[in-house]
Amino acid sequence: MTISGESLKATSQKKSSKNKIFIEIRRDWCKGCGICVAFCPKKVLELDEHEKSSISNPEACTQCGFCELHCPDMAIELILIQEGTK
């Protein structure tokens, strides 16, 4: 997969398992609609000064997947990294 433009990555630790989650936001696809920000139950995301979604509070993420599934621009991906494969 090629990613044009800057992509922000942040990690969040899943408390219940040893798995790591990356939330990847493709800034060049994000149109700043705010859906992910408004509906994230843990207030993990916010719109930055460029009106793009960014991760402000990664630790709080519960990997519920709401943001990933509801982004109209497919700009958010939760990437599960199995411990040991990194």
Partner: peptide, 27 residues
């Protein structure tokens, strides 16, 4: 991966910010 189903060269798509059609595609 979800993005493997997308013709990435046409992204970002033409739909307006927040357009529900994007969510349908995602889903």
């Amino acid at each position: 991966a979800v993005r493997d189903y997308i013709r990435e060269r046409f992204m970002p798509h033409i739909w307006c910010p927040g357009c529900g059609h994007g969510i349908v595609m995602n889903t």
